[in-house]
Amino acid sequence: MQDLAGIDVQRLRISRPIPYRQVAASALLLAFLAFVAHAFWVGAIEWHYVSDYLFSAPILKGVRGTIVMTVCAMVIGIVLGTAVAMMRMSANPALRWAATGYIWLFRGIPALLQLLLWFNLALIFPTISLFGFFPVNTVDVMTPFVAALLGLGIQQGAYTAEVVRSGILSVDRGQMEAAQSIGMTRLRAMLTIVLPQAMRVIVPPIGNETIGMVKLTSLASVIQYSEVLRTVGDVYYANSRVIELLIVAGIWYMVIVTVLSIGQSYIEKYFSKGWGRAADVPKALSDGPAAMGAA
């Protein structure tokens, strides 16, 4: 061990060596990006097609279709999922079985297959009626929009149910008991006390699923619903600029997903009310029951 006695500690300086590894990694990354950029530059991509079509009417119609379908399918998925999650945790066995069966069925069948089944429902039920009343032709009702909405929304409900259930399970049992002790019914306690706290756990995976749904809507192109992938396809069948128009679609997906991600962080902030600032008050500062007098 070196003796510090003979050293003038005041004169010592800590050296900052050049971080060679970081420099090397940065250089490699830049080289890779340059390679990719160069490939796109020399590749036979006519970039002006991308800018020409990015905001063209048919593409924007497709973008609108994608957004509308995402929102509607997620609303159905969340409402259905919340109800099914509560059913699955019910004391009533019939409700539990129904919920379990629903999740088993709609999580088990591929989404694309479900879309095709709904879209082709007319093959087995030419007309639909309410117990014989209000008969309608299935073909008229089961438009591409309705088929895609049912297919995507109902299968989403099966996934969301499990997300919501895990959120509910994450809330301490004592919360339900405390809510009941101030006279709340189980349903009310679930809706006003347990679920709002469960949202902290539920929102991040739901955000994930919503982003998944944005891209899952592209399956609806198969049943002629005009979302962005389909409208892009309609254009490139006519002008053969396949890659350019796929890039257009890719850009729009990225835009939608980016906006959703930003929205998610705001929603998470809202539901973290009462958390995050945990116990920044030192215990020693706890003010005694002063108004009580010394007891």
Partner: peptide
């Protein structure tokens, strides 16, 4: 029923070992 039981519980206050305050409420 759950509703009638809930009404009866209003008469009985409960203080828990682990407080069980609602963390999302002030």
């Amino acid at each position: 029923s759950d509703g009638q039981t809930a009404r009866q519980r209003q008469n009985v206050g409960m203080v828990f070992q682990r407080f069980n305050l609602f963390p999302h409420r002030s």
